[in-house]
């Protein structure tokens, strides 16, 4: 918030941004290749591949959110309501998942 709005409009800053965007785009492609490759590496069990794949995807997604969607320099208000959203999404995931943690289901699955 300390930035003056006009800082973000100077040609030098914009040119730097343009370069950064290309760089991040390149890295995203690199990480995509990495994701594909790692899925065919044998880590002993398939669930490890799944976890690694998801971690990489989360990392890539945060690059997109932070840089491309410039959340990195976004205002606090947006963080506030995104935080709630994230909490509820996690709740939705966790509680439908919890559904299976029950004497009826645990046997044979975990």
């Amino acid at each position: 918030m300390s930035h003056d709005h006009h800082d973000h409009d100077s040609p030098e800053y914009l040119k730097k941004q343009s370069l950064l965007v290309w760089k991040i785009g390149g890295w995203l492609i690199v990480f995509t290749c990495l994701t594909v490759w790692l899925q065919y590496v044998d880590f002993g069990s398939h669930s490890r591949n799944v976890i690694i794949g998801l971690l990489l995807a989360a990392f890539k997604a945060s690059l997109v959110a932070l840089i491309f969607m410039h959340l990195k320099s976004e205002r606090g208000l947006i963080y506030k309501f995104l935080a709630f959203t994230v909490i509820f999404v996690i709740g939705l995931f966790a509680l439908t998942y919890l559904h299976y943690v029950s004497p009826l289901y645990t046997e044979g699955l975990f």
Binding site: L95, H99, V101, P103, L104
Partner: peptide, 18 residues
Amino acid sequence: SFIVWAHHMYLTGMGTVV
């Protein structure tokens, strides 16, 4: 209000923990 929804589903046998 977002984390009370399954009280409509007690009868489904979704498990004691939940």
